[in-house]
Design a protein around this nucleic acid. Structure first.
Lengths: 339, 339
DNA sequence: CTCTAAACTGTAATCGTTTACAGTTTGCCT
DNA sequence: AGGCAAACTGTAAACGATTACAGTTTAGAG
């Protein structure tokens, strides 16, 4: 492989100045004859402009950084795909940065964006401590946050009203005749956990169904293993006629547990998940789930970010996306009307 | 937010030269007194070295590019996590580039790596045409390929002998007494499809079991929907006492289909998947699966790449990783011995 | 106290682009 | 033809770091 071509070599080859070469590469305000010579030289030398040099000069990297706690989660993956779909036909590349865990790690990571390797940031913190809020606020890159915007954080935001999603789910269960509804949730220390918990309380009150602390289960996290472990210890779940799970993975664990005790899901008991991941149609019975529009949120976040980059001074915007209930086999009329 | 600090500002602030500042940032061969002054200035100004300038000068971007056909596939996601786990404590950032589909798109994408925005490339093409092979060979960045290495392509390679995986699966089925084994595969036009098909043929011959063309099913792709569609048309699957699926998603579709026809999976019929994704333990019955060690492959690929970057001239290496069979409920003794 | 080698520091060139500014060419109108 | 504006082109200075090289300081030995 030959020495990598530079713009100067192209210029010499084409018998024009470097400025002209640069101009035909971008913008192109050149006489056709010049342009042709330059293009020929570029083709011949296989020239590719060096992105670092360009980045240095024009002060933009053409990169967008994505920072999630956990790319492993299907919902985040779907968000990523949404983002990718809008970035795909822009100049921007996507750079990944699964900055898990600790506030400190996140803080460091956000700091290092100061190095200017990204023109924009899409972030979705799963918890929100004051330190994280401060770190976000001190950012100089255009940022959009997906999820619950912490107090006093001034960045663009796309969020879903998951409480409304819970409400949809509860209303549906009520409608098919369920009276005794349990909630299987992740930890209250997370944003989603807290909001969904509150949503459940409100929704139950709204439809005037009774519940108490014992009908709310907390798994150690949002995985199906967590649900499984939880239900191996606490075997009271079958007393309900419906189980609302705050994501699909938890629901999968719940279904497995119920089935292993010969409870017929979709007949003896209804189960609802959230996220409407691919998993829903893979399970048997297929899982009714609240679609939290992950892909859509990703798209909107990306669009918001692109606008923000174009126009850094406009006021932060906030977009809500509406959840949708997708009804499948795991919530069946019979389940509620049985008794 | 103040003007972004440069190394020159730090130098002035600390009363030393830019060279000294640069030296304490990396390498650090400075007198303690100097170092301290510089560090103080850096802290005070909140200085972060500009990565573009550094990249331009030292000719490395500290970025690794990942190019998969389809990040949506859980197996790729797991590979990504493996890669991430080793890159996590290096200076490298991971940049994503889901360059799906056409040879042309891939070619373009590989081309654009010439811009030098990545120091290394990890690629996993799902098909291998001569053009792709040529494009890979003409690459100037250190590259490692995960999957089947096309003929005459000279890059580092980590692959899994999926045929051996199939062999494990068939042997297991044979052992629990299955005689009539069907294969549910994706399209033969893909590398995995072709190799697994061949693996099945060989394995069946090896254990001296009969099969014919009708016992090999082809889904339009490797998704569960594809399996579902396939089995809605062709209702002959229950004639077998075991179904070997070339990935877990296909297996999920197969299980759903069988269960909808009241065939008891794990009792009337055994089902095996491949990839050993999370899905396996979410399904009911849980899915026996051939673990293709996606995370491990990702780790190895990343390690190989790091070595290659360090030592660009060494001969390409090839690492095989061994598949493992993970037995769960979907292949049960009873299924084979029933008849 | 002087000398010398070793350790450190500073100056300035450089990486490959973009772009302001000044200079040149072109084309059109009279 | 000549004049003028418009269109294009070239020169050279950035962008912000790294680093060769030369110059300076330091420390230890005699």
């Amino acid at each position: 492989m030959a020495q990598k071509a530079t713009i100067a070599m192209v210029a010499k080859h084409a018998g024009v100045s470097v400025a002209s070469v640069s101009r035909v590469i971008n913008g192109t305000l050149a006489r056709p004859a010049t342009e042709e010579k330059v293009r020929a030289a570029i083709a011949e030398l296989g020239f590719q402009p060096n992105s670092a040099a360009r980045a240095l000069k024009v002060r933009e990297s053409e990169q967008i950084c994505l920072s999630f706690a956990d790319i492993g989660n299907p919902a985040y993956l779907t968000i990523t795909q949404g983002i990718n779909s809008v970035l795909r036909d822009t100049k921007y590349r996507l750079i990944l940065s699964s900055s898990l865990g600790t506030a400190d790690e996140i803080h460091n990571h956000l700091q290092s964006l100061g190095r200017g390797y990204a023109d924009g940031l899409i972030i979705s913190p799963i918890t929100s401590t004051p330190e994280i809020a401060k770190a976000i606020n001190s950012l100089t890159v255009p940022t959009v946050l997906i999820g619950t915007l912490p107090k006093d954080v001034l960045v663009d935001n796309v969020y879903i009203d998951s409480a409304k999603g819970i409400e949809l789910a509860v209303a549906h269960l009520r409608e098919i005749g369920c009276k005794k509804i349990a909630l299987v949730n992740g930890p209250l220390s997370t944003n989603p956990g807290r909001r969904r918990h509150q949503g459940f309380v409100d929704a139950m009150n709204k439809v005037k169904l009774k519940y108490d602390d014992s009908s709310i289960y907390f798994a150690r996290d949002f995985t199906s293993q967590a649900a499984t472990e939880l239900l191996e210890k606490d075997k009271t779940l079958h007393r309900y006629d419906a189980v609302l799970c705050t994501n699909d993975l938890l629901a999968a664990g719940v279904i497995r547990n119920l089935q292993s005790r010969s409870v017929r899901v979709g007949e003896d008991i209804s189960v609802i998940g959230m996220d409407n991941t691919e998993l829903c149609t893979l399970l048997n019975p297929s899982l009714t789930s609240v679609d939290l529009r992950a892909e859509r949120r990703g798209q909107l976040a990306a669009e918001l970010l692109l606008e923000r980059i174009k126009n850094p001074l406009s006021a932060p915007r906030k977009i809500e996306v509406k959840p949708e209930l997708v009804i499948r086999e795991s919530t069946n009329m019979r389940a509620g009307t049985r008794k």
